[in-house]
Design a binder for these strands. Structure first.
Lengths: 337, 337
DNA sequence: CTGAAAGCGCTTACAG
DNA sequence: CTGAAAGCGCTTACAG
């Protein structure tokens, strides 16, 4: 086994001190050119790279950031993380990923773990619903950004979109089309501000339209299968339903597929909408009306913000990103019943 | 800002030496009970946790493993990584993820980066096609496992499935159904042993059936859009085609959707198959014949193998996992033409 | 059972 | 421009 080479090996072979080797890489201008070249050549031939632990200990900087995501097994988070990670790597940072599920009320442990293991900054999906985590982050001054939901008033900066507004826009649109019996299929709501905002938007839109009593919310875990199963119960329990708002394209996919089994025509018999505008949304049959979400942008902008905060120690500015209501043929005004 | 507490802070407050504090956590049996309790109480109240860099430097262990994946923006890798990461976290390891695309001929840089940044072991998707990376890994004795493709003969252990066999099984099945004009849509092939094996399986099956001349392979990047686009060209350029084998369910999804536009009925006019058995496969219209791949199992078993290798320094045993041909209504014998 | 001390591999203020 | 030395925060062999 070839042991890892260290500064002293390079120094020895280049006939300089370890200080000079270190300077060659960290403050090259401070080293005479011919010496620098010799050191670089030796380092190269020995395959030298500084021990990250020693460097981190000495510099008090790890160049690691942590990402807390609900799961990777859901395209939209994976996509966000993909752009986040790519941006960070490009700047010499490594990323620790930790999946924690959808409930943000117990974020202290994962946040603590990430920081204890060296994360200098944190990306967290969704609002932090755990005061211990907030206190810890504040006391330790860990640059943190929350993504996926924009929170105007939160002391922790957020780079995301307005879940209430996006859902409200869609719900109002359905109301205008004349729907009076609507069902929302939501994802897990506990400790999940995104779902809570969407439900609130749905209920308020219904209330203002005077159809609150016929507005149902059904909560499920994200999966095609659940989407299909829920559609069966809607058909059985709320047959008057003319519009199903799915808080995920995944649900909508399952719903559409179950509609076929139930011989329900979309949109003639039922309007179905999704959320996220995943790439399959436009290829479903019929194409899905949904809300396009800036997943890649959230990842990239969060990375940029964190990078900047780590360098300048300045406060991160929140950013409210745009969503886009994409109307496709899965919506229409409801049949007269 | 509350500075991070260190051993010496705890030692001072507990009126013991730093050695005793350290022992309290690392070899508790070697500390008198009442002292130990006092130390733990103080550490707790101070929110102490050891500095990972100092610990890593001293122990020469980082408890970090690296994962090299093509992209997270593809469900099957995200799923594998999800189970990999979950298993590792449960054992106190952190994971660095690095996305590198599908071409494994330039793995030296990413492998080097991960190891230089402290990864003690590596998970790599696909065969390593870069000799510098192999040499580096061997010289430094970095426990490594390759996943997604099982390689009987490779010196680097692999925990995956036999891409040749899986594809061959499907191709032979289609041949038996009577297909004589088949097209395979493959993902990126450069530096990608999985695709190469699948293409070989397809070509050999065709050759043995005497239909090599009408067997086409079309290479594309993975996306629904590409799947749809390819279907258009197949329809235009190879109208005699009766079966399209997609090396990804994503392609197949696009192909099926384009078939609708082209007024092609599946499977009456055309047989379409996928690969991966993603959760949507059975909900497509018609349900997709595909190959189920053990994504979660690959992640979990690779994690286990790496964990074990890091602890025992023993050689990792390769494992050939099973795939499953799932026949659904998107296949049938071809129409007589 | 406990403490003083060495040392893991770096970087940088200090002196020359 | 260069080197000797201190020190980042741990763990553990050594001595008691």
């Amino acid at each position: 086994m070839k042991p890892k080479t260290k500064v002293s090996d390079v120094a020895h072979r280049a006939r300089v001190s370890v200080a000079t080797v270190s300077r060659t890489f960290n403050t090259p201008a401070a080293v005479r050119e011919n010496v620098r070249k010799r050191v670089i050549a030796v380092a190269q031939s020995l395959g030298y790279s500084p021990n990250p632990a020693a460097k981190a200990l000495r510099m008090q900087r790890t160049n690691i950031v942590g990402a807390v995501v609900p799961t990777l097994d859901y395209a939209i988070y994976a996509q966000m993380l993909n752009s986040f990670q790519t941006a960070l790597s490009a700047s010499g940072y490594m990323v620790f990923v930790l999946t924690v599920g959808f409930d943000n009320t117990h974020l202290y442990e994962p946040v603590r773990l990430l920081v204890d293991r060296g994360a200098e900054a944190l990306l967290i999906v969704g609002r932090i619903e755990d005061d211990r985590a907030r206190t810890f982050l504040a006391e330790r001054r860990i640059p943190t950004v929350t993504t996926y939901s924009y929170q105007a008033d939160d002391p922790i900066p957020s780079i995301g979109f307005d879940n209430y507004a996006a859902t409200r826009q869609l719900a109002d649109y359905l109301v205008r089309l004349g729907h009076r019996h609507m069902v929302m299929i939501s994802g897990p709501t506990r400790g999940n501000d995104r779902q809570q905002s969407r439900i609130r938007a749905f209920r308020e839109a219904a209330a203002e339209a005077g159809i609150a009593k016929t507005a149902q919310v059904i909560e499920r875990t994200y999966s095609l299968r659940e989407g299909a199963a829920v559609m069966r119960s809607i058909h059985a329990d709320f047959p008057a339903t003319t519009a199903v708002m799915c808080n995920s394209d995944v649900f909508a996919f399952g719903v559409l597929s179950e509609c076929k089994n139930l011989r329900l025509h979309v949109p003639e018999d039922l309007t179905v909408t999704g959320f996220d505008n995943q790439d399959f949304a436009g290829l479903l049959d019929p194409p899905l009306t949904t809300i396009a979400v800036p997943a890649t942008e959230m990842g990239a902008r969060s990375a940029e913000a964190l990078l900047n905060a780590v360098k300048t120690r300045q406060r991160i500015a929140s950013a409210r990103l745009e969503t886009n209501l994409i109307v496709r043929s899965s919506t229409a005004s409801p049949p007269s019943r």
